[in-house]
Design a protein around this nucleic acid. Structure first.
Lengths: 242, 242
DNA sequence: CGTACCTTTGACGGCTGTCAAAGGAAGTGG
DNA sequence: CCACTTCCTTTGACAGCCGTCAAAGGTACG
């Protein structure tokens, strides 16, 4: 397997030629170790760098008018972080690590330079942004109209499907480094209610969560309850390569 | 004022040179009249065209597992429609007109071709996608954690601010072609409750809505209640032109 | 080992959904 | 221009999901 996480990420969607791979590998010359809770950037800081996440988990957040933190988005290994706002002068969301890991920083001009040299890469960056957006739409439609139980099921299925995309042999028992406060913030609930619903899902034999590990006992039933639309994760972009 | 709505749209953010403008104007050679309720495309149709909206309003929607329509997004004159999913093989959301208007269709390859010729345009397309995304984030954080009253205030402020960006002398009384069912769908409420909250806002002297017209009576108080973060609408992209 | 954080549980209240019905507005066809 | 149908809006009663507050026990980290 190639060492580059962007190359792996994009090859998951469609094949890149050697020239494209070389351009992408430029982005990852400087992997840096990151500690849990460490910021990639804070809200309102000037935006000049993007990151790729080589290992570990991260999340994007905002602060509400009342000063509470609201988590917007979760990043997994292989994800590009900051693609959707590198054209803003400053960051509208903060990003920090959820676990220890490694991240690679590169200046945003590199993306424009790469696009100039390869139409395939231009399409790939648009496609990646589109996929992220599609997942967001999927979450939005669920979060807005559904019960807390369904929200939780939906989010767990989302994470498992995305994780399976970058982890070849993912078990039903896997790392799930979210505490109930962060889950609540992501799903528009309170930590108290997340606790109640998790106990309920556990009581019904769907899953169990201890510490930072989640085990799914009945995937089919969980998927059924989540009503997750898998299409948002599988763009068919091969035709772009014609 | 130039006749091209994309040029106007982008110039609102940063200046384009004549070459860029010429490339963009290519996109708008074929304006077509569109009727209210007419589809630009339906869910699952093959994605091959993008549209710019020359005049009129449109919205993107999905259907829930139970078959109900959920509105995800609203498009105003000058908006580019389909930018965020043109790299998917098929459409994940449907788009239809909310009012009569004119739309210009063009093949998505034209965007990639334009990006190949101008780094400024590449940045501009990314920036536009980023702005759209930022507005979505702003709505998401509000919709998830706030009261129905705040959701409505927030959405009304969003629309007014976006409308003001393309309508030089926008009054406090303006076209607002949403019925309560669509508002409910956008905000994750029921039409019954939208009716209740609208009456309440009217009773409190903040606004009044008749048919397809909205009049804001106390903008400051409405903006205060909405807690709208204006930053998401104002990317400072001038530095990209260096 | 102590402190801070996280999770669980209970009681209570309120916001919002559901169901239902009636009146009004708008679009259609004669 | 009128009659008819369909859709939209309003209002009320009622229930339930979920937020808030509080306290206690468990867990992680220095």
């Amino acid at each position: 397997m190639t060492g580059s996480c962007i190359v792996r990420h994009f090859n998951h969607f469609f094949p890149l030629d050697d020239g494209d791979e070389a351009l992408l590998e430029e982005f990852e010359r400087h992997p840096e170790p990151m500690r849990r809770h460490q910021h990639l950037w804070r809200i309102n800081e000037t935006a000049c760098m993007l990151y790729t996440l080589k290992s570990g988990w991260a999340y994007a957040y905002r602060t509400s008018p009342r000063g509470e933190m609201k988590v917007l988005e979760v990043f997994l290994p292989g994800d590009i972080i900051g693609l959707h706002d590198f054209t803003f002068g400053h960051h509208l969301t903060g990003v920090r690590m959820l676990t220890d890991g490694f991240a690679c920083a590169f200046p945003y001009q590199d993306i424009l330079a790469a696009c100039e040299q390869s139409r395939t890469l231009t399409a790939a960056f648009f496609a990646d942004s589109a996929r992220e957006r599609a997942v967001m739409n999927e979450r939005l439609t669920t979060l807005m109209h559904c019960s807390a139980r369904m929200k939780l099921a939906h989010f767990i299925i989302e994470i498992r499907l995305r994780l399976a995309g970058v982890t070849p042999d993912l078990e039903q028992r896997f790392e799930f480094p979210f505490n109930q406060k962060i889950l609540a913030s992501l799903l528009g609930l309170t930590n108290v209610h997340v606790s109640r619903v998790l106990s309920e899902l556990e009581r019904d034999g769907l899953l169990s969560k201890q510490r930072r590990t989640l085990e799914i006992h009945d995937y089919d039933r969980l998927h059924e309850e989540a009503q997750f639309n898998d299409a948002c994760l599988h763009p068919d972009m091969h035709r772009l390569c014609q």
